[in-house]
Design a protein around this nucleic acid. Structure first.
Lengths: 226, 226
DNA sequence: ATTTTGGGTGTAAAATTAACACTCATTTTT
DNA sequence: AAAAATGAGTGTTAATTTTACACCCAAAAT
Protein backbone atom coordinates (compact mmCIF):
# COMPACT_ATOMS: atom_id res chain seq x y z
CA UNK A 1 0.00 0.00 0.00
CA UNK A 2 2.81 2.41 0.78
CA UNK A 3 4.31 1.46 -2.58
CA UNK A 4 1.63 3.45 -4.23
CA UNK A 5 3.06 6.56 -2.65
CA UNK A 6 6.69 5.87 -1.91
CA UNK A 7 8.07 6.25 -5.38
CA UNK A 8 6.89 9.83 -5.53
CA UNK A 9 8.54 12.95 -4.18
CA UNK A 10 7.25 15.08 -1.33
CA UNK A 11 7.23 18.82 -1.39
CA UNK A 12 6.99 21.64 1.06
CA UNK A 13 3.54 23.11 0.96
CA UNK A 14 3.07 26.70 1.99
CA UNK A 15 0.31 29.26 2.17
CA UNK A 16 0.53 32.91 1.19
CA UNK A 17 -1.98 35.46 2.36
CA UNK A 18 -3.12 38.46 0.41
CA UNK A 19 -4.58 40.47 3.24
CA UNK A 20 -6.77 43.34 2.15
CA UNK A 21 -7.72 46.26 4.34
CA UNK A 22 -8.87 49.84 3.97
CA UNK A 23 -6.44 52.58 4.94
CA UNK A 24 -7.01 56.26 4.26
CA UNK A 25 -9.72 55.51 1.75
CA UNK A 26 -7.50 53.22 -0.26
CA UNK A 27 -7.33 49.48 -0.71
CA UNK A 28 -4.17 48.24 1.00
CA UNK A 29 -2.52 44.89 1.44
CA UNK A 30 -0.26 43.77 4.24
CA UNK A 31 3.34 43.17 3.20
CA UNK A 32 6.31 42.13 5.25
CA UNK A 33 9.92 42.98 4.81
CA UNK A 34 11.70 39.66 4.68
CA UNK A 35 14.42 39.39 7.32
CA UNK A 36 15.70 36.01 6.12
CA UNK A 37 16.57 34.05 3.04
CA UNK A 38 15.41 33.39 0.45
CA UNK A 39 14.59 36.77 -0.98
CA UNK A 40 15.90 38.49 2.16
CA UNK A 41 15.39 42.23 2.07
CA UNK A 42 12.57 42.02 -0.42
CA UNK A 43 8.98 42.72 0.34
CA UNK A 44 6.73 39.74 0.32
CA UNK A 45 3.31 38.44 1.21
CA UNK A 46 2.90 36.92 4.62
CA UNK A 47 3.24 33.19 4.29
CA UNK A 48 4.14 30.05 6.14
CA UNK A 49 4.50 26.34 5.77
CA UNK A 50 1.68 23.92 6.22
CA UNK A 51 2.37 21.74 9.25
CA UNK A 52 1.57 18.11 9.78
CA UNK A 53 -1.35 18.65 12.11
CA UNK A 54 -3.31 21.22 10.14
CA UNK A 55 -5.23 21.42 6.91
CA UNK A 56 -4.10 23.87 4.26
CA UNK A 57 -7.06 26.13 5.07
CA UNK A 58 -6.14 26.01 8.74
CA UNK A 59 -2.54 26.91 7.95
CA UNK A 60 -3.72 30.02 6.16
CA UNK A 61 -5.91 30.99 9.11
CA UNK A 62 -3.01 30.42 11.47
CA UNK A 63 -0.60 32.55 9.45
CA UNK A 64 -3.18 35.31 9.41
CA UNK A 65 -3.78 35.01 13.13
CA UNK A 66 -0.08 35.04 13.95
CA UNK A 67 0.32 38.24 12.00
CA UNK A 68 -2.79 40.16 12.95
CA UNK A 69 -4.02 38.57 16.16
CA UNK A 70 -7.38 38.14 14.47
CA UNK A 71 -9.54 35.07 14.29
CA UNK A 72 -12.68 34.42 12.30
CA UNK A 73 -11.52 36.54 9.43
CA UNK A 74 -13.06 36.09 5.99
CA UNK A 75 -10.64 34.09 3.85
CA UNK A 76 -10.99 32.53 0.48
CA UNK A 77 -8.66 30.37 -1.52
CA UNK A 78 -7.17 31.95 -4.62
CA UNK A 79 -5.47 28.86 -5.97
CA UNK A 80 -2.35 26.73 -5.94
CA UNK A 81 0.89 27.99 -7.39
CA UNK A 82 3.19 25.21 -8.43
CA UNK A 83 5.88 26.33 -10.83
CA UNK A 84 9.06 24.32 -10.29
CA UNK A 85 11.28 27.30 -9.62
CA UNK A 86 8.78 29.58 -7.96
CA UNK A 87 10.84 29.45 -4.77
CA UNK A 88 14.55 29.87 -5.50
CA UNK A 89 15.54 27.91 -2.39
CA UNK A 90 13.54 24.72 -2.53
CA UNK A 91 10.62 23.17 -4.33
CA UNK A 92 7.58 24.62 -2.62
CA UNK A 93 3.99 24.43 -3.75
CA UNK A 94 2.07 27.35 -2.35
CA UNK A 95 -1.64 27.89 -1.91
CA UNK A 96 -2.70 31.52 -1.94
CA UNK A 97 -5.61 32.91 0.08
CA UNK A 98 -7.05 36.34 0.23
CA UNK A 99 -8.35 37.75 3.47
CA UNK A 100 -10.58 40.73 4.13
CA UNK A 101 -10.40 42.53 7.41
CA UNK A 102 -11.09 45.80 9.12
CA UNK A 103 -7.64 47.35 9.20
CA UNK A 104 -8.31 48.98 12.55
CA UNK A 105 -8.89 45.68 14.24
CA UNK A 106 -5.50 44.21 13.43
CA UNK A 107 -3.07 44.17 16.35
CA UNK A 108 -0.65 46.93 15.44
CA UNK A 109 1.91 45.70 17.98
CA UNK A 110 2.06 42.35 16.25
CA UNK A 111 2.25 43.96 12.83
CA UNK A 112 5.19 46.11 13.88
CA UNK A 113 6.90 43.17 15.57
CA UNK A 114 6.71 41.20 12.37
CA UNK A 115 7.76 43.99 10.09
CA UNK A 116 4.41 44.08 8.38
CA UNK A 117 3.13 47.18 6.70
CA UNK A 118 -0.05 48.26 4.99
CA UNK A 119 0.66 49.19 1.40
CA UNK A 120 -1.77 50.66 -1.13
CA UNK A 121 -2.40 48.18 -3.91
CA UNK A 122 -1.50 50.77 -6.50
CA UNK A 123 1.85 51.53 -4.87
CA UNK A 124 3.24 48.04 -4.43
CA UNK A 125 7.01 47.68 -4.27
CA UNK A 126 8.84 45.04 -6.23
CA UNK A 127 7.90 41.68 -4.76
CA UNK A 128 9.72 38.37 -4.68
CA UNK A 129 8.64 34.91 -5.77
CA UNK A 130 5.43 34.76 -7.79
CA UNK A 131 3.71 37.10 -5.38
CA UNK A 132 2.76 39.70 -7.99
CA UNK A 133 0.91 36.99 -9.88
CA UNK A 134 -0.81 35.87 -6.69
CA UNK A 135 -1.94 39.39 -5.89
CA UNK A 136 -3.24 39.88 -9.41
CA UNK A 137 -5.25 36.69 -9.18
CA UNK A 138 -6.48 37.53 -5.69
CA UNK A 139 -7.81 40.88 -6.83
CA UNK A 140 -9.57 39.20 -9.73
CA UNK A 141 -11.22 36.61 -7.50
CA UNK A 142 -12.15 39.24 -4.96
CA UNK A 143 -13.69 41.50 -7.58
CA UNK A 144 -15.79 38.63 -8.85
CA UNK A 145 -16.99 37.63 -5.41
CA UNK A 146 -17.67 41.21 -4.42
CA UNK A 147 -20.50 41.38 -6.92
CA UNK A 148 -22.42 38.41 -5.61
CA UNK A 149 -21.49 38.29 -1.95
CA UNK A 150 -21.60 40.86 0.82
CA UNK A 151 -17.84 41.10 1.17
CA UNK A 152 -17.70 44.85 1.53
CA UNK A 153 -18.76 44.62 5.15
CA UNK A 154 -15.71 42.53 6.00
CA UNK A 155 -13.53 45.52 5.16
CA UNK A 156 -15.66 48.30 6.59
CA UNK A 157 -16.07 49.16 10.26
CA UNK A 158 -19.22 48.04 12.02
CA UNK A 159 -20.88 51.36 11.21
CA UNK A 160 -20.29 53.02 7.87
CA UNK A 161 -21.69 55.72 5.65
CA UNK A 162 -23.04 55.14 2.16
CA UNK A 163 -20.23 57.22 0.75
CA UNK A 164 -17.71 54.89 2.38
CA UNK A 165 -19.53 51.91 0.95
CA UNK A 166 -19.65 53.41 -2.52
CA UNK A 167 -15.99 54.38 -2.42
CA UNK A 168 -15.13 50.82 -1.51
CA UNK A 169 -17.09 49.40 -4.42
CA UNK A 170 -15.43 51.89 -6.73
CA UNK A 171 -12.02 50.82 -5.45
CA UNK A 172 -12.67 47.14 -5.91
CA UNK A 173 -14.49 47.42 -9.23
CA UNK A 174 -11.99 49.99 -10.44
CA UNK A 175 -14.76 52.09 -11.96
CA UNK A 176 -16.76 55.10 -10.84
CA UNK A 177 -20.37 54.58 -9.83
CA UNK A 178 -23.24 57.01 -10.03
CA UNK A 179 -24.19 58.21 -6.57
CA UNK A 180 -27.93 58.23 -7.05
CA UNK A 181 -28.05 54.88 -8.79
CA UNK A 182 -25.81 53.39 -6.15
CA UNK A 183 -28.04 54.58 -3.32
CA UNK A 184 -31.14 53.44 -5.12
CA UNK A 185 -29.65 49.96 -5.33
CA UNK A 186 -28.56 49.95 -1.69
CA UNK A 187 -32.03 50.95 -0.59
CA UNK A 188 -33.30 47.67 -2.04
CA UNK A 189 -31.20 45.63 0.36
CA UNK A 190 -33.02 45.23 3.61
CA UNK A 191 -29.81 43.82 5.07
CA UNK A 192 -28.17 47.26 4.95
CA UNK A 193 -29.92 49.00 7.79
CA UNK A 194 -29.72 52.61 8.86
CA UNK A 195 -28.85 53.05 12.51
CA UNK A 196 -30.10 56.25 14.05
CA UNK A 197 -26.52 57.46 14.34
CA UNK A 198 -24.73 60.18 12.44
CA UNK A 199 -21.08 60.33 11.48
CA UNK A 200 -19.79 63.86 11.95
CA UNK A 201 -16.17 63.23 11.09
CA UNK A 202 -16.48 62.92 7.34
CA UNK A 203 -18.52 66.00 6.59
CA UNK A 204 -19.96 69.15 8.08
CA UNK A 205 -23.51 68.14 7.67
CA UNK A 206 -22.95 64.63 8.98
CA UNK A 207 -23.85 61.37 7.28
CA UNK A 208 -26.16 58.59 8.36
CA UNK A 209 -24.42 55.51 9.66
CA UNK A 210 -25.56 52.16 8.39
CA UNK A 211 -24.74 48.66 9.46
CA UNK A 212 -24.95 45.32 7.77
CA UNK A 213 -27.30 42.73 9.20
CA UNK A 214 -26.21 39.33 7.85
CA UNK A 215 -29.28 37.65 9.30
CA UNK A 216 -31.48 39.58 6.88
CA UNK A 217 -29.51 39.11 3.70
CA UNK A 218 -28.72 35.44 3.98
CA UNK A 219 -29.95 34.00 0.70
CA UNK A 220 -29.60 36.52 -2.09
CA UNK A 221 -27.18 39.35 -1.97
CA UNK A 222 -26.16 40.37 -5.43
CA UNK A 223 -24.96 43.85 -5.84
CA UNK A 224 -25.02 44.05 -9.56
CA UNK A 225 -27.90 41.92 -10.61
CA UNK A 226 -26.48 38.90 -12.31
CA UNK B 1 19.33 28.86 4.42
CA UNK B 2 18.06 25.31 4.46
CA UNK B 3 17.12 25.87 8.11
CA UNK B 4 14.25 27.98 6.96
CA UNK B 5 12.71 24.97 5.33
CA UNK B 6 14.08 21.95 7.14
CA UNK B 7 11.95 22.11 10.23
CA UNK B 8 8.81 21.77 8.15
CA UNK B 9 7.18 18.65 6.81
CA UNK B 10 6.91 17.68 3.16
CA UNK B 11 3.80 16.28 1.62
CA UNK B 12 2.84 14.36 -1.44
CA UNK B 13 1.23 16.67 -3.92
CA UNK B 14 -1.20 15.22 -6.43
CA UNK B 15 -3.47 16.42 -9.17
CA UNK B 16 -6.99 15.25 -9.87
CA UNK B 17 -8.68 15.82 -13.20
CA UNK B 18 -12.36 16.42 -13.70
CA UNK B 19 -12.60 15.63 -17.38
CA UNK B 20 -15.78 16.78 -19.04
CA UNK B 21 -17.06 15.50 -22.34
CA UNK B 22 -20.34 15.22 -24.23
CA UNK B 23 -21.82 11.76 -24.67
CA UNK B 24 -25.29 11.10 -26.04
CA UNK B 25 -26.33 14.68 -25.49
CA UNK B 26 -25.33 14.59 -21.84
CA UNK B 27 -22.49 16.07 -19.87
CA UNK B 28 -20.20 13.25 -18.78
CA UNK B 29 -17.04 12.99 -16.76
CA UNK B 30 -14.32 10.39 -17.02
CA UNK B 31 -14.05 8.12 -13.99
CA UNK B 32 -11.76 5.20 -13.34
CA UNK B 33 -12.37 2.11 -11.35
CA UNK B 34 -9.52 1.97 -8.87
CA UNK B 35 -7.56 -1.27 -9.13
CA UNK B 36 -5.31 -0.51 -6.16
CA UNK B 37 -5.34 0.84 -2.64
CA UNK B 38 -6.34 3.15 -1.16
CA UNK B 39 -10.02 3.12 -2.02
CA UNK B 40 -9.56 0.06 -4.23
CA UNK B 41 -12.73 -0.90 -6.00
CA UNK B 42 -14.23 2.54 -5.73
CA UNK B 43 -14.73 4.88 -8.59
CA UNK B 44 -12.51 7.91 -8.61
CA UNK B 45 -11.27 10.81 -10.64
CA UNK B 46 -8.16 10.30 -12.65
CA UNK B 47 -5.23 11.62 -10.68
CA UNK B 48 -1.52 11.30 -10.19
CA UNK B 49 1.36 12.60 -8.17
CA UNK B 50 3.33 15.66 -9.06
CA UNK B 51 6.89 14.67 -9.92
CA UNK B 52 10.09 16.51 -9.22
CA UNK B 53 10.66 17.70 -12.75
CA UNK B 54 7.26 19.15 -13.51
CA UNK B 55 5.09 22.00 -12.38
CA UNK B 56 1.70 21.24 -10.89
CA UNK B 57 0.01 22.45 -14.08
CA UNK B 58 2.26 20.19 -16.13
CA UNK B 59 1.43 17.23 -13.93
CA UNK B 60 -2.26 17.75 -14.61
CA UNK B 61 -1.62 17.93 -18.34
CA UNK B 62 0.46 14.76 -18.15
CA UNK B 63 -2.18 12.82 -16.24
CA UNK B 64 -4.73 13.88 -18.83
CA UNK B 65 -2.47 12.90 -21.69
CA UNK B 66 -1.66 9.52 -20.18
CA UNK B 67 -5.35 8.77 -19.92
CA UNK B 68 -6.71 10.18 -23.15
CA UNK B 69 -3.74 10.41 -25.47
CA UNK B 70 -4.66 14.06 -25.98
CA UNK B 71 -2.45 17.10 -25.80
CA UNK B 72 -3.35 20.76 -25.88
CA UNK B 73 -6.58 20.22 -24.06
CA UNK B 74 -8.27 23.11 -22.31
CA UNK B 75 -7.58 22.81 -18.60
CA UNK B 76 -8.22 25.14 -15.73
CA UNK B 77 -7.34 24.90 -12.08
CA UNK B 78 -10.24 24.39 -9.71
CA UNK B 79 -8.29 24.76 -6.49
CA UNK B 80 -6.21 23.01 -3.86
CA UNK B 81 -7.76 20.47 -1.51
CA UNK B 82 -5.81 20.09 1.68
CA UNK B 83 -7.81 18.45 4.44
CA UNK B 84 -5.54 16.39 6.69
CA UNK B 85 -7.41 13.14 6.20
CA UNK B 86 -8.61 13.60 2.65
CA UNK B 87 -6.50 10.63 1.59
CA UNK B 88 -6.88 7.73 4.03
CA UNK B 89 -3.43 6.35 3.19
CA UNK B 90 -1.07 9.28 3.49
CA UNK B 91 -1.10 13.03 3.79
CA UNK B 92 -1.62 14.27 0.26
CA UNK B 93 -2.46 17.78 -0.88
CA UNK B 94 -4.27 17.64 -4.18
CA UNK B 95 -4.83 20.29 -6.80
CA UNK B 96 -7.93 19.76 -8.91
CA UNK B 97 -8.24 20.75 -12.55
CA UNK B 98 -11.12 20.54 -14.91
CA UNK B 99 -10.59 19.68 -18.55
CA UNK B 100 -12.90 20.07 -21.53
CA UNK B 101 -12.53 17.82 -24.50
CA UNK B 102 -14.34 16.40 -27.45
CA UNK B 103 -15.21 12.94 -26.20
CA UNK B 104 -14.77 11.44 -29.65
CA UNK B 105 -11.15 12.47 -29.81
CA UNK B 106 -10.06 10.61 -26.70
CA UNK B 107 -8.14 7.38 -27.39
CA UNK B 108 -10.71 4.73 -26.52
CA UNK B 109 -8.02 2.03 -26.37
CA UNK B 110 -6.21 3.92 -23.66
CA UNK B 111 -9.42 4.61 -21.79
CA UNK B 112 -10.31 0.94 -21.76
CA UNK B 113 -6.78 -0.06 -20.77
CA UNK B 114 -6.96 2.24 -17.78
CA UNK B 115 -10.43 1.26 -16.72
CA UNK B 116 -11.81 4.70 -17.45
CA UNK B 117 -15.42 5.26 -18.28
CA UNK B 118 -17.59 8.17 -19.29
CA UNK B 119 -20.29 8.75 -16.72
CA UNK B 120 -23.15 11.24 -16.93
CA UNK B 121 -22.73 13.91 -14.26
CA UNK B 122 -26.23 13.27 -13.00
CA UNK B 123 -25.61 9.55 -12.58
CA UNK B 124 -22.36 9.56 -10.66
CA UNK B 125 -21.60 6.55 -8.49
CA UNK B 126 -20.33 6.91 -4.95
CA UNK B 127 -16.84 8.32 -5.15
CA UNK B 128 -13.89 8.07 -2.81
CA UNK B 129 -11.74 10.75 -1.19
CA UNK B 130 -13.08 14.30 -1.49
CA UNK B 131 -13.82 13.79 -5.15
CA UNK B 132 -17.52 14.67 -4.93
CA UNK B 133 -16.53 18.03 -3.49
CA UNK B 134 -13.99 18.54 -6.28
CA UNK B 135 -16.55 17.76 -8.94
CA UNK B 136 -19.06 20.13 -7.37
CA UNK B 137 -16.51 22.90 -7.35
CA UNK B 138 -15.35 22.12 -10.88
CA UNK B 139 -18.88 22.40 -12.22
CA UNK B 140 -19.29 25.71 -10.46
CA UNK B 141 -16.08 27.13 -11.88
CA UNK B 142 -16.91 25.80 -15.33
CA UNK B 143 -20.39 27.31 -15.26
CA UNK B 144 -18.94 30.67 -14.35
CA UNK B 145 -16.32 30.58 -17.07
CA UNK B 146 -18.78 29.33 -19.65
CA UNK B 147 -20.59 32.63 -19.57
CA UNK B 148 -17.60 34.79 -20.34
CA UNK B 149 -15.36 32.53 -22.37
CA UNK B 150 -15.94 30.44 -25.47
CA UNK B 151 -15.56 27.12 -23.69
CA UNK B 152 -18.45 25.39 -25.43
CA UNK B 153 -16.34 24.80 -28.51
CA UNK B 154 -13.85 22.75 -26.51
CA UNK B 155 -16.57 20.19 -25.91
CA UNK B 156 -18.29 20.22 -29.30
CA UNK B 157 -17.02 18.64 -32.48
CA UNK B 158 -15.42 20.89 -35.08
CA UNK B 159 -18.78 21.30 -36.82
CA UNK B 160 -21.94 21.63 -34.78
CA UNK B 161 -25.55 22.69 -35.12
CA UNK B 162 -27.13 25.52 -33.19
CA UNK B 163 -29.37 23.04 -31.43
CA UNK B 164 -26.30 21.18 -30.20
CA UNK B 165 -24.80 24.42 -28.98
CA UNK B 166 -27.98 25.44 -27.19
CA UNK B 167 -28.38 22.04 -25.59
CA UNK B 168 -24.85 22.31 -24.26
CA UNK B 169 -25.48 25.72 -22.73
CA UNK B 170 -28.65 24.39 -21.19
CA UNK B 171 -26.73 21.47 -19.70
CA UNK B 172 -24.01 23.61 -18.23
CA UNK B 173 -26.27 26.40 -17.02
CA UNK B 174 -28.84 23.90 -15.82
CA UNK B 175 -31.67 26.01 -17.16
CA UNK B 176 -33.72 26.01 -20.34
CA UNK B 177 -33.05 28.74 -22.89
CA UNK B 178 -35.44 30.27 -25.38
CA UNK B 179 -34.62 29.07 -28.87
CA UNK B 180 -35.25 32.33 -30.67
CA UNK B 181 -33.46 34.47 -28.13
CA UNK B 182 -30.55 32.05 -28.12
CA UNK B 183 -30.19 32.19 -31.89
CA UNK B 184 -30.50 35.95 -31.91
CA UNK B 185 -27.61 36.13 -29.48
CA UNK B 186 -25.50 33.68 -31.43
CA UNK B 187 -26.04 35.65 -34.60
CA UNK B 188 -24.25 38.57 -32.96
CA UNK B 189 -21.03 36.61 -32.62
CA UNK B 190 -19.08 36.83 -35.80
CA UNK B 191 -16.79 34.13 -34.42
CA UNK B 192 -19.55 31.52 -34.82
CA UNK B 193 -19.58 31.06 -38.57
CA UNK B 194 -21.96 29.04 -40.69
CA UNK B 195 -20.23 26.59 -43.00
CA UNK B 196 -22.12 25.69 -46.11
CA UNK B 197 -22.64 22.19 -44.78
CA UNK B 198 -25.76 20.49 -43.51
CA UNK B 199 -26.09 17.87 -40.82
CA UNK B 200 -28.63 15.27 -41.87
CA UNK B 201 -28.26 12.95 -38.91
CA UNK B 202 -30.11 14.96 -36.30
CA UNK B 203 -33.28 15.77 -38.16
CA UNK B 204 -35.25 15.08 -41.30
CA UNK B 205 -34.96 18.52 -42.64
CA UNK B 206 -31.27 18.84 -41.82
CA UNK B 207 -29.55 21.57 -39.83
CA UNK B 208 -26.87 24.05 -40.79
CA UNK B 209 -23.43 23.25 -39.45
CA UNK B 210 -21.45 26.03 -37.81
CA UNK B 211 -17.90 26.25 -36.65
CA UNK B 212 -16.07 28.45 -34.19
CA UNK B 213 -13.36 30.74 -35.45
CA UNK B 214 -11.20 31.75 -32.49
CA UNK B 215 -9.29 34.28 -34.56
CA UNK B 216 -12.44 36.38 -34.91
CA UNK B 217 -13.63 36.32 -31.32
CA UNK B 218 -10.38 37.04 -29.54
CA UNK B 219 -11.21 39.99 -27.32
CA UNK B 220 -14.79 39.88 -26.17
CA UNK B 221 -16.79 36.74 -26.06
CA UNK B 222 -19.45 37.00 -23.42
CA UNK B 223 -22.43 34.85 -23.92
CA UNK B 224 -24.66 36.39 -21.37
CA UNK B 225 -23.74 40.02 -21.40
CA UNK B 226 -22.04 40.76 -18.12
C1' DA C 1 -23.72 86.68 7.19
C1' DT C 2 -21.36 84.12 3.68
C1' DT C 3 -18.85 80.41 1.96
C1' DT C 4 -17.55 75.82 1.86
C1' DT C 5 -18.17 70.90 2.05
C1' DG C 6 -19.87 66.50 1.61
C1' DG C 7 -24.94 64.44 2.14
C1' DG C 8 -28.98 63.53 0.16
C1' DT C 9 -32.83 63.03 -3.41
C1' DG C 10 -36.23 61.59 -8.49
C1' DT C 11 -37.33 61.26 -13.24
C1' DA C 12 -37.00 60.13 -18.02
C1' DA C 13 -34.59 57.94 -22.00
C1' DA C 14 -32.06 54.01 -23.64
C1' DA C 15 -30.75 49.38 -23.62
C1' DT C 16 -31.48 44.78 -22.58
C1' DT C 17 -34.08 40.83 -21.60
C1' DA C 18 -38.05 37.94 -21.75
C1' DA C 19 -42.10 36.03 -23.73
C1' DC C 20 -44.29 34.01 -27.35
C1' DA C 21 -46.27 30.52 -32.20
C1' DC C 22 -46.04 29.38 -36.54
C1' DT C 23 -44.06 27.71 -41.21
C1' DC C 24 -40.39 24.86 -43.55
C1' DA C 25 -38.05 20.82 -45.47
C1' DT C 26 -37.57 16.29 -45.31
C1' DT C 27 -38.45 11.47 -43.87
C1' DT C 28 -41.53 7.96 -42.24
C1' DT C 29 -45.75 5.91 -42.09
C1' DT C 30 -50.01 4.44 -43.88
C1' DA D 1 -49.31 8.92 -53.25
C1' DA D 2 -51.06 11.27 -49.32
C1' DA D 3 -50.65 12.19 -44.55
C1' DA D 4 -48.22 12.48 -40.40
C1' DA D 5 -44.26 13.31 -37.83
C1' DT D 6 -39.95 15.64 -36.64
C1' DG D 7 -36.61 18.90 -35.65
C1' DA D 8 -35.04 23.62 -38.13
C1' DG D 9 -35.74 28.06 -38.66
C1' DT D 10 -37.65 32.83 -38.04
C1' DG D 11 -39.62 38.69 -35.61
C1' DT D 12 -42.16 41.44 -32.78
C1' DT D 13 -43.69 43.37 -28.54
C1' DA D 14 -43.87 44.16 -23.59
C1' DA D 15 -41.38 44.29 -19.33
C1' DT D 16 -37.46 45.11 -16.90
C1' DT D 17 -33.15 47.01 -16.01
C1' DT D 18 -29.69 50.31 -16.63
C1' DT D 19 -27.96 54.71 -17.44
C1' DA D 20 -27.74 59.65 -17.41
C1' DC D 21 -28.27 63.70 -15.14
C1' DA D 22 -28.52 68.62 -11.37
C1' DC D 23 -29.96 70.71 -7.52
C1' DC D 24 -31.00 71.63 -2.50
C1' DC D 25 -29.58 70.51 2.46
C1' DA D 26 -27.35 70.88 6.99
C1' DA D 27 -23.66 72.10 9.51
C1' DA D 28 -19.07 74.06 10.19
C1' DA D 29 -15.64 77.35 8.98
C1' DT D 30 -14.59 81.78 7.68
Amino acid sequence: MTDYYSSHPRFFVSVDCIIFGLKDGKLNILLTHRAFEPEMGKWSLMGGFVERDESVDDAAARVLRQLTGLDNVYMHQVGAFGRIDRDPGERVVSVAYFALLNANEADSELLRARGAQWTPVDELPELGFDHPEMIEKAREVMRRKFVTEPLAFELLPELFTLTQLQTLYELVMAQPLDKRNFRKRIAEFSCIEPTGQIDKTGSRRGARLYHYNPAVSADTFSFFKI
